[in-house]
């Protein structure tokens, strides 16, 4: 038996909307502590890691660890039925066989709606993500990061991120022109728009702009985004979920031979 109720369906909507183009089918691992999801995109370049902790839910009950394999398209369809203010209950009963029920309840209008989604048998590969200290940790408003990615996407497929003690530089060079965006840590750290930068070691890495831009679809989930980098290691883009979990995107770096291609 698994039963989890969210105060508002909007958070689930936002999560699914931000990953459904990257991942088609997803196995939700439900345990006593959290509802988690880990899935790669079809080309195995990016990895989505979602953790919705118990604290995020109004009520949460999970008798035993279960894995709910769901098509994100069907889930999005189900969630489309919900209004943002509706409560959203996710239910799975072992006796019900292979379906998950989403119950949306509009408390003001005394209306409830049940949407049943068929589960899928997904054979997934779980990746072991090592705990590691990143050389650079950058935090900024989600809007800022989104603008950076879409601005740079106009020039090139590849984004170069270089960080030194004092600044982090995003560069994209194309045939038509180039763009360079530089961030230095904000002096006014109390402002909600501030940028923080922690550099242990300098980095210089390349990533696919298309993917980074894709990740910024999660901007609705949080005000701030955390970006962690280390040379020759996947970048981590993290959106917090009200201090009760996160949605993380990992992206493998591009092969570093820009001399041959970018000139």
């Amino acid at each position: 038996m698994f039963e989890a109720k969210l105060t508002s369906a909007s958070i689930m909507k936002k999560i699914i909307d931000s990953i459904k183009e990257l991942v088609t089918d997803a196995p939700f691992d439900c345990s006593e502590q959290a509802m988690c999801l880990q899935a790669m995109d079809s080309s195995h370049v990016a990895l989505v890691s979602l953790k919705m902790e118990v604290g995020l839910f109004d009520t949460y009950r999970c008798d035993r660890t279960i894995n709910l394999g769901l098509s994100l398209a069907s889930m999005a369809k189900a969630l489309k039925c919900a209004n943002n203010e509706d409560t959203c209950e996710i239910k799975y009963d072992d006796n019900d066989g292979d379906t998950v029920t989403f119950t949306f309840c509009d408390t003001k209008r005394d209306r409830t709606q049940d949407v049943t989604v068929k589960m899928m048998d997904i054979d997934v590969e779980h990746l072991g993500i090592p705990d590691q200290d990143y050389a650079v940790v950058l935090e900024m408003p989600v809007t800022e990061f989104k603008k950076t990615c879409s601005d740079l996407f106009m020039f090139s497929e590849t984004i170069n991120i270089t960080a030194t003690k004092g600044a982090v530089v995003f560069t994209s060079k194309g045939d038509s022109g180039s763009s360079v965006i530089t961030y230095t840590p904000s002096k006014d750290v109390d402002s909600s728009e501030h940028v923080t930068l922690d550099v242990k070691e300098p980095v210089n890495v390349n990533f696919s702009t298309k993917y980074l831009l894709q990740f910024t679809k999660a901007s609705a989930l949080s005000d701030r985004v955390k970006i962690a980098l280390t040379n020759d290691t996947p970048i981590v883009i993290e959106y917090g979920l009200n201090d009760n979990g996160h949605l993380r995107f990992y992206l493998a770096p591009k092969i570093d031979d820009e001399e041959n291609n970018m000139d």
Binding site: H44, D123, V124, E125, L127, P130, P234, K254
Partner: peptide, 20 residues
């Protein structure tokens, strides 16, 4: 070639046994 430069994430994170 540009798109082919993307490395696989599995190169960095080892595949674990699926829990299902």
């Amino acid at each position: 070639e540009d798109s082919n430069q993307n490395q696989k994430i599995t190169k960095f994170f080892a595949v674990r046994r699926s829990s299902r």
